[in-house]
Amino acid sequence: MHLIIEILTDHLTILFALIMAIFLGFELISKVPTVLHTPLMSGSNAISGVVIIGAIILVRSSGSEDYISLFLGILAILLGTINVVGGHAVTNRMLQMFRKK
């Protein structure tokens, strides 16, 4: 109970954003045609790589001697970047195929 109150008071704005984003997401994508299922999935998959922003903040806020944080953070950046760049590039390739008609 204490925990719930703490979350509600400390993160109210972000919780509002969370609720809005859920509705927005459903609203935006609910009418997507079959032909776009795969590109939508791989495109949104690339967007989920947004978590690299967290990894960048983590590494930047670590001391240069904090090897554990640095190691975990750098690995996270590396993997996340592959996800973001690879995901967008693959989606682009697929959409080019659809577009040439």
Partner: peptide, 8 residues
């Protein structure tokens, strides 16, 4: 970003 992906 995360939530939009979650919804999709």
């Amino acid at each position: 970003g995360g939530i939009l992906v979650g919804s999709s």
